[in-house]
Design a binder for these strands. Structure first.
Length: 206
DNA sequence: CCTGTGATTTTCT
DNA sequence: GAAAATCACAGGC
């Protein structure tokens, strides 16, 4: 399932050219049984694609500035998604570098190291939401369909807790290629403090 | 290496 | 209104 995506190639063809990455890190989200999944509380306008057929892209916007991409991985009516967390750029490195907002990208390995970085490097946004990744005619597509010859040997795959989720944080549904430098560093979710402006806590008289 | 924190806006309660 | 499947940066080890 989720680990089968590791080693596959994701391509995005735009007017600027082609960027392709080899997937090195993914995370599974299990719909109605997973409190961390966007589809846990049912269908909404945002997550509608997850309830559709498998092999399509579910792209969402978060934290006020980032996009993240998933592959729908269940039959219509069941909403599971696999978050594409990281990859290694194998085609279009210069193009990918130019798309990154910050010029602090020091090495090629950082170009798509992290789900929002991956989308930035590949110019993925809400307009790719719902695109059929298994159709070779799509601009955004996966090369080597799931179920084809194994892309990565099972021995190369490691698993661990998911990154940045506040619910069900300890379920090991994150998978990556062992030793691959493009795998993102693990960070546990930290409880967000309110943005300093509207401080809710009045001074306690003492 | 690790930890904490500000940025910024869509989405849902 | 508040949270959010994140990132970049600063600072300590």
């Amino acid at each position: 399932m989720a680990p089968d995506l590791l080693g596959l190639v994701l391509e995005h063809e735009t007017a600027d050219g082609l960027v392709a990455v080899t997937l090195s890190e993914v995370e599974a989200y299990a719909g109605s049984i997973d409190p961390a999944s966007h589809s846990f509380r049912g269908r909404t306008g945002r997550n509608a694609v997850m309830f559709g057929p498998p092999g399509h892209a579910y792209v969402y916007f978060t934290y006020g500035m980032h996009f993240c991409a998933n592959v729908v991985c269940s039959p219509p009516g069941v909403a599971t998604g696999i978050l594409l967390r990281a990859g290694r750029v194998v085609v279009g490195e210069e193009l990918a570098r130019g798309r990154r907002r910050f010029d602090s990208v020091r090495s090629p390995r950082d170009l798509a190291r992290g789900p929002a970085r991956l989308c930035q490097a590949m110019a993925i946004n809400r307009s790719q939401d719902g695109e059929d990744l298994l159709d070779p005619a799509s601009k955004l597509r996966l090369r080597g369909a799931v179920g084809d010859e194994r892309a990565a040997e099972p021995a190369q795959i490691e698993a661990g807790p998911r990154v940045g989720v506040s619910q069900a944080a300890d379920i090991p549904w994150r998978f990556w290629l062992a030793g691959d430098p493009t795998v993102s560093p693990y960070r546990r979710a930290v409880p967000r403090r309110r943005t300093s402006k509207t401080s809710v806590a009045p001074p306690v008289p003492e």
